[in-house]
Write a protein that binds this DNA or RNA. Structure first.
Lengths: 348, 348
DNA sequence: CAATTCTTTGTTAACGTGCACATTCCTCTG
DNA sequence: CAGAGGAATGTGCACGTTAACAAAGAATTG
């Protein structure tokens, strides 16, 4: 406890003394003003303003068992789609006075458990996970705590509790199907390496779906290129293009595991004088803003990540408001769609 | 307080009972293990693992007066440079077990005070602000609380306490000077509107510096175009290009308030068959990754935002470790530089 | 107008932890 | 072997708030 030289920040006690009421009345003025008669309320509010009093939520949460935290675990913040999720989540939680606690793992399993422990130490009322939990110890921690768990983005086959998202595997298959339907035979793909400590599980799922669909159509997967560490970005696509354009016979169409990589790929084609889509079709994933802007604009698989975040937020509010201990499991597939732009065109 | 049907999450008391020690010993095992003899420590750790115990930081913080929170207030998360700041900050704070509390205002003054109040309610040990505080009431709240304040990104002329960043005004002047030195006379710029509720103060500073430098060189500012709501992005640049390319006589060089806008500008030039840089030079601000990748690669003003976040984090650690009530004010200018690429070339 | 109900405010205790101090048990020293 | 010093552990309380209950006054009812 505190044997401190001087306390500076005002407490509810300071306010109550100044206003000449009990601390409980102050608490009520803040949390349910209609329970307090107008005159008293005014006096208290004045004292609050005078002292610049801001309630201590840690203390309040300890007492009420409601911390007002929602935890969010992401692989990284430096990805427009993930920050869109965070953005959408905040939007729907803002009105309900929840505070988002963001942690990210930089795609490392090492960090996963550490970060999870840190988050749980804040006693969030719910935790939103991207791509599940991969370590046993981490999963055990989740079970021991009584937070509500929502997995988002990649829909797991066996969800821990609730889930909102889409199937990355399906996204890969859909992309392959799109290129096959356009009449292409030599279809390639570019993705990060799937060996090493840093693995993009969601991207892997897309590639798995992509290759499966190729095989089902009796096509070769030999033009699928894996290199570089995730998370992939523009330079990954540019490097991939340099590698893939040298091969003979040249591929006719390429799927990049991310729009960023696809954009880099197209730019490298421009530099090498390879016309997109006349000589080579390119498609991406994620519908990043930049894909709409380049020449030619990028055909891509679209998932509305901001809406995903918003829907997750709304679901959380319902879940938390209901107060049920064991609410029915929710499983929402937000789906995905192909956005046809000019970077892919029919063969021949 | 809690009259609750059943408590589920384990407390330090549960652990101490299971291990047959006092709760204080458990606390010590967690916070300073060397004070506890190995045998006891092992017993306690076993109990912790068995119960899946995770300390409650809210309770700990209340008692120790150290919450382990650092607050960060941003205009938006959906900007690569700001998320780079958050990323850099997290990196340096991670080892010290600080948790970043992120809030963003979406460039709205309305939200600023609300968010600040929410953050202060968590009693962060320091608060990192982007672009200062604009409302009186908000400033008063900051003063009443005893958090350490660090302003980052735009260096204020009169900092509240500490500051790490660069001068956006200087960035604008430097950009203008660069174009003037290249021999251009009809120099334009594109930025968001500076009227309305949503204002990008940092961008405004850059424009102010840009126009000042033009005027000092005796050049006209009539090609400076203002339109659209901040934050500006690709489509803003594209739209600006459409507007600016129609004017006669055409500008020779353009500075966009952000790389994203500059990229959109270049893409629109491509579509209209205007060669960059042969017919028109374009430069941006922020050195976003995409600027390096397009054709031609973008000349830009570079600021290392990730390093900015890291330096801020290191400074915070020193500030908080020292324990001084009134540490010396710190004011760090991380500077900026012009990155010359191919989108600007000398006139004539 | 007495009995009842509602409105408004207050009192008490507990939320889970860590600091300050106290206690116990060893180990050393001369 | 008594006394001093240190290492290991324990006790009590405070951190700032709110839930539950209590109390006092005002309004309503028959």
């Amino acid at each position: 406890m505190g044997r401190h030289p001087r306390k500076k920040t005002a407490t509810i006690g300071d306010v109550s003394r100044l206003a000449g009421v009990s601390s409980m009345t102050v608490s009520r003025v803040i949390r349910s003003p209609d329970l307090v008669v107008a005159a008293t309320r005014a006096r208290v509010n004045e004292a609050i303003a005078d002292l610049g009093y801001v309630p201590n939520r840690a203390a309040g949460g300890l007492s009420s068992r409601r911390t007002g935290f929602i935890a969010l675990m992401l692989p990284t913040l430096t990805n427009a789609n993930f920050s869109a999720v965070a953005h959408g989540l905040t939007e729907s939680l803002r009105a309900a006075d929840f505070q988002l606690l963001i942690a990210y793992t930089d795609y490392s399993l090492e960090e996963e458990e550490r970060q999870l422990r840190n988050l749980l130490a804040r006693r969030p009322e719910a935790i939103v996970l991207t791509g599940g939990v991969h370590r046993r110890a981490a999963a055990r921690l989740l079970i021991a705590s009584d937070v509500k768990v929502v997995e988002i983005a990649d829909l797991p086959s066996r969800p821990i509790e609730h889930a909102v998202g889409f199937s990355n595997y399906q996204a890969g298959r859909t992309a392959a199907r799109h290129l096959i339907d356009k009449g292409f035979q030599r279809i390639g793909a570019v993705a990060g390496s799937h060996e090493g400590d840093v693995i993009d599980h969601r991207g892997e799922e897309r590639m798995r779906g992509f290759e499966d669909e190729l095989r089902l159509a009796g096509l070769s997967t030999s033009h699928v290129l894996r290199h570089g560490l995730p998370p992939v970005s523009y330079d990954h696509g540019a490097a991939s293009a340099a590698l893939l354009l040298g091969r003979k016979p040249r591929v006719e169409a390429v799927f990049a595991v991310s729009d960023l990589s696809a954009v880099g790929f197209v730019m490298e084609c421009q530099r090498q004088g390879v016309a997109v889509p006349d000589e080579l079709s390119v498609m991406g994933f994620g519908d990043f803003e930049i894909g709409r802007e380049i020449n030619p604009p990028l055909t891509t698989v679209h998932v509305d990540f901001r809406a995903l975040g918003q829907r997750t937020g709304q679901m959380l509010l319902e879940l938390l408001a209901s107060g049920e201990e064991e609410p029915a499991r929710r499983f929402i597939d937000v789906g995905l769609s192909i956005i046809e732009r000019a970077s892919v065109r029919s063969r021949g």
